[in-house]
Amino acid sequence: MPGLEDLYREIILDHYRTPRNQGELPPPAVRAEGHNPLCGDEIQVYLDVQDGIVTDIKIGGQGCSISQSSASMMSAAVKGKPVAEIRNLVRRFKNMMSIEEEDGNAPPLDESRPLGDLEALRGVVKFPVRIKCATLAWNTLLDGLDQSN
C-alpha cells in the first residue's frame, strides 16, 4: 500500500500552506471556472494573455491540499510562458497523471525541460481517487486558454 508520504510530499504541503499567485485579475483577463463534482472543490483561473504569452495568472477558489497545491505549482510554472509551451506542459502533466491523450493526432510531446516542482505530484497516481483533484486546475487552465483564443 502506498504511504501518505508518497502523496503529501513536503513541497506539496508548502504550496498548500503558502499558495502562489492567489487572487483575481480584472477584465479583460480571461476567467475560467472548474468544479470537481465529486467533492465540491471549486477553482477559478484568471489569465492575462498578450501576444501569445501568459503574462499573468491568478488562482481563486477552495479545495483540498492536492487540488490547491497543484493549482499553485501550475501558476508558478506557466507564468510568463508562451501558450504553445503551456499546452505542451498541460499534456505532460496529464500524461504523468496517467490520463490518455484525447487527441490521437497531437504533435509529439516536448519533454526536454525538467518538470521541476511538479514532479512532486507524481505520487498522486498511486491514489487514483485524487487524480481528479490534481488535474482540476489544469483542465480549468485549458478552458481559459481556449477562451483567450
Partner: peptide
C-alpha cells in the same frame, strides 16, 4: 484540514 485530506488520512 480539507475533508478530502481528512478522509485520505483516515483511509490509512
Amino acid at each position: 484540514i480539507h475533508p478530502h485530506d481528512v478522509s485520505q488520512v483516515l483511509d490509512q
